[in-house]
Amino acid sequence: MPKILLVEDNELNRDMLSRRLERRGFTVVMAVDGGQGVQMALTEKPDLILMDMGLPVLDGWEATRQVRADPATAHVPIIALTAHAMSSDEQKAKEAGCDDFDTKPVELPRLLEKINALLSRSRTV
């Protein structure tokens, strides 16, 4: 089963998304801030990272940069989650190294589509 690292500081969002993903068969590990996220990307070796952008300690953009900078984690696909559908946020996330982008509140079918697309791509790579 694919392992997803969910980096999210809001407890409700974390609980909600993790439960919904687990119900669809994913293994979900969770980090509550950017620093922990970078750490767990290294230790947990997830297949994909869902990264909230407004994080404490280290924000999502910086965390993404660090994940990308480390050769051990550079290949892991990252989907950025932002609070509002601002195109500039999408642009910024992509510049920071994210593979895709989605807005909160999460529309699960759409997010699943994006997750599956990235997972199948990394499998073929």
């Binding site: 969002n13 439960r19 909160k104 509140p105």
Partner: peptide, 17 residues
């Protein structure tokens, strides 16, 4: 306002599922 709203939308969606 959006943060709690996200929870309302998300959990109601989950409950539906």
């Amino acid at each position: 306002l959006r943060t709690p709203l996200n929870a309302i939308i998300g959990y109601s969606e989950m409950l539906q599922e």
